[in-house]
Amino acid sequence: MRIKTFGYFSREALISLRRNSWMVLASVGTVAVSLIIVGMSLITVMYANYVATYLESNVEIRVFLKTDVNEDNARALQDQIKSIPGVAKAEFINKDKALEDFRKDLGEQQNMIEALGGKNPLPHLYKVTTISPQDIVKVANKLQALQQTDQIKYGQGVVEKLFAITKWVRMVGLTVMVLLGLAAIFLIATTIRLTVFARRKEIQIMKILGATDWFIRWPFLMEGMILGFIGALIAVLIVDVSYAAFTDYILTELSFNIIGLNRDPRFLVSLGVALLGTGTFIGAIGSGISMRKFLRV
């Protein structure tokens, strides 16, 4: 394609976009909304997956011993725990270490420790990991049965819930995305159909003058792609701005990074590129459908 011809196509495409401004608004809006949902669900699913994998690989049973068990007796339990079938590792943490860890976790909010008035309310504990996640319940029951055990905690239920949520988000996101994507394609096809109709006389003349089929098609294809691209651009802006606002809120208001929030600009750029690509593609499909049906060249 010559550069001049490309200029001609773009000019023609823009002229006709101006002509059908209401349809343009509707189709751009639909593309934007559908891609906003795509973007948001992608982000949600990605984080849910991230958190789930993190939790799953870190599932450990925390065995809190009764406070009256002294350190020597507590240490003596190690072999007994290791002999339980399915146990991979049993790490003993004495109450001083536990308090120290807690202090580190708190970060800037050390005053919570000071509020304890120098006492250590924490018990000795074991962190037990199992060979496979399936063993957790079995091992946990055995650990609970030990007479020195006060209570045990493990995050298996949380992981399951998280996976359920991820699946749900993914399914709903996908359904809404597909439906809105189809609506966007339909609206773009209708917009292009109006354009083809408005210019049928011109198309007829072009054909008689010896324009090739693709010369006639390109402006319509470009028009659809421009519609999709503008819609995607709006979606990218909204997704990026609200994502930035969300992470800002989490990081400043809650002051801790609960799920390893990602401010990596590369992530947002690749998400943006993916959305723009999808939008342009949707536009191409929409005008393709319209051209097949209404532009018999």
Partner: peptide
């Protein structure tokens, strides 16, 4: 237009 559609220079 007759020349544009046949991509004349």
């Amino acid at each position: 237009f007759a020349l544009e559609v046949i991509e004349a220079s």
